[in-house]
């Protein structure tokens, strides 16, 4: 057996799910983690990178807009381009779209409310490295907690995403007005995943369901 894999967890000023992700990966799955402060630029020794939820830089200007220029994300972009696994959860998904690693944008929920509730989802794993633990069409429940989760892109873009099998997670009952019921997107290669729901909050039985565990368990290799 090789040594335990080590996962980088990006921390911006205003991130608030970084410790939840650490607990899910270390406490629930036995992986090693390393926090990556936003000014860092060394990813040596990391097997994957997670951009957690929260309010990076206070969500000033737009969610993820300032984070996109953080030094750590320059190396995360190179890591992703080289095929490294990158996961963006909630604010992390917003950051991935602002960076252009995933297309489209996340905007204010259709009915304006901040939503904090369990959400039923359908999984379409396709090529996503992160979702190979699930079967096509699996129904799972993950918590959502966001005010800006309404996925938007133009109709041609959506048609292309669907034709490429990049819409890998869909809401069963669309809570926020996202086009195509998009809850999570993969890049074409399958190594980058962005999703609004929180798999890290569905790993430890003491907080409820564990439907997110198989997603993060993909990191066990």
């Amino acid at each position: 057996m090789s040594a335990a894999r080590t996962i980088g967890i990006v921390v911006f000023p205003g991130s608030n799910c970084d410790r939840d992700v650490r607990w899910a990966l270390e406490g629930c799955l036995g992986l090693s983690t390393r926090f990556l402060w936003h000014e860092e630029s060394d990813l040596a020794g990391l097997d994957a990178v997670v951009i957690p939820g929260g309010f990076s830089y206070g969500d000033y200007l737009r969610c993820g807009a300032i984070a996109r220029f953080a030094p750590v994300l320059e190396v995360v972009r190179a890591f992703a381009d080289a095929g490294g696994p990158v996961l963006g959860i909630c604010n992390g998904f917003q950051v991935l779209t602002e960076m252009g690693l995933l297309p489209g944008a996340l905007t204010r929920n259709a009915r304006l409310h901040f939503l904090c509730e369990p959400s039923s989802l359908t999984v379409h794993p396709g090529r996503s490295e992160w979702l190979q633990g699930y079967g096509e069409g699996d129904s799972i429940v993950l918590p959502i907690a966001h005010g800006e989760g309404r996925y938007q892109c133009d109709p041609d873009q959506l048609a292309s995403l669907e034709a490429n099998g990049q819409v890998v997670l869909r809401y069963a009952a669309n809570p926020n007005g996202s086009v195509g019921d998009v809850a999570g997107l993969s890049n074409p290669a399958g190594n980058v995943l962005g999703l609004m729901p929180h798999p890290e909050r569905a790993c430890d039985p003491c907080t409820g369901g564990i439907d997110g565990r198989r997603l993060l368990a993909s990191l066990l290799g």
């Binding site: 200007l61 807009a65 220029f69 602002e98 489209g104 944008a105 905007t107 892109c153």
Partner: peptide
């Protein structure tokens, strides 16, 4: 590149 996101 910064102030607006042309996608939205």
């Amino acid at each position: 590149r910064l102030l607006a996101n042309p996608v939205i």
